[in-house]
Write a protein that binds this DNA or RNA. Structure first.
Lengths: 214, 214
DNA sequence: TACTAGCGGAGGCGGCATCTCCGGTTAGGG
DNA sequence: CCCTAACCGGAGATGCCGCCTCCGCTAGTA
């Protein structure tokens, strides 16, 4: 469609993407384009010449990242029939989410006019449902757990990680373990008192403006 | 020290406190003084004449609220020897926290130059420790749970509540139940993989500037 | 009535993120 | 090697937002 970029321009574009990936991962989507540019060693002007705005950069950056997550989730499907397998699947998924704050922002905070998120959800939903169904059929996951519990758990864990990080990186597995212990099928569990969010409710949550301070 | 306020001034002061309590509870500490004033039906000027700045208002407002929380926690001490008692204690404490977003902000986000928070923590810490110790001695709480797990759990639950609120108020008990099921002493638990925060670490967390997006 | 505490709210101030603009530089085709 | 279009840097325009002040007017109170 358009002529190829001059060599230096192409290089700068890569530098910007690299820098953005790094900063988004570390600090979430609200880092400044200015800062991304500075970190990349280029001027702000260059940043805005390559990417119309921050959203364009985000889109370019997270398209494949999301792919990876969905694939990861899908591949884990065949191990969730045992408790250890389920734990491992949730664990490695969570590890990805925790490692990239930008990714969490893309998934859980309203981003883009909902289009991208909607498409993403379309692909995540069946996988979450399958994971929960299989683990329940195998009798390892408590029967009253629901698919939307999984993203909610990711949110809780993400917050713990962000909160604790300044004084102690890597605290989150403690709480993930705690929650997984509560998720395991066993006698004597307290029935979960209120129904989980429906897919539709969860969808709406990702679309509406996030209440300040997610 | 100073002359008593004129009648209308005193009334406005009350209106402001009332308004602030309402808005802080509903939306957290970052509501504007301007908004509080408007909601109270007074001018901004009046607000700033009564309270030197937002912090002064917050201090005036939360001093007793914090007292109530500490008292609530202390009173619950004698029921935590049974599982149902423990659940009830945590449940009612959590209900208070969830009902007031401002309270959570005061407790968990760096507020005031640390002075007030430090004093607060001083009073909370022994109670948390006693709750955990007693419940563990009674054999109802898993042995590897720690006092600082309690505030972390409050944080997780708080986030779920804030996140879900726009489409479904009152979702949080589902996840509180889940976590409590993981907290209960029973055979076959997975040992918690990393140590809990120490009191000191937790203290530091409440003092340092919160990473954007707690 | 008179005196002053108190009132409302427009707007000044400072900070912050997004994005633009333009004078200077450089890649790379001829 | 040279020339020009493509590209660069980054100062600063723009817009927004929250905190707080100031001042002309109102109304308690002695």
């Amino acid at each position: 469609m358009s002529r190829p970029l001059r060599a230096d321009a192409a290089r700068n574009r890569e530098l910007l993407l690299l820098s953005a990936r790094e900063l988004f991962a570390k600090r979430g989507l609200d880092v400044t384009l200015d800062e991304i540019a500075r970190n990349a060693g280029v001027g702000v002007g260059t940043a805005y010449r390559r990417f119309a705005n921050k959203d364009a950069l985000i889109e370019a950056l997270f398209e494949d990242q999301l792919d990876r997550m969905v694939r990861l989730a899908t591949e884990s499907l065949d191990k969730v029939g045992t408790w250890d397998g389920f734990v491992e699947a949730i664990g490695s998924f969570t590890a990805q989410m925790v490692a990239d704050r930008g990714l969490r922002d893309v998934v859980f905070r309203n981003y883009g006019r909902g289009d991208r998120i909607a498409k993403l959800r379309e692909r995540f939903v069946p996988t979450m449902e399958a994971v929960v169904r299989r683990a329940q059929e195998a009798g390892v996951l408590r029967a009253d757990a629901a698919p939307t519990d999984l993203p909610i758990i990711e949110i809780m864990i993400g917050v713990v990680d962000v909160f604790a990080e300044p004084v102690r990186a890597g605290l989150y597995p403690r709480y993930l373990t705690l929650i997984l212990d509560g998720l395991r099928a066993r006698p004597g569990l307290t029935p979960l008192p209120v129904p989980a969010l429906t897919n539709d409710e969860f969808d709406r949550l990702t679309l509406i403006p996030p209440p300040p301070g997610l």
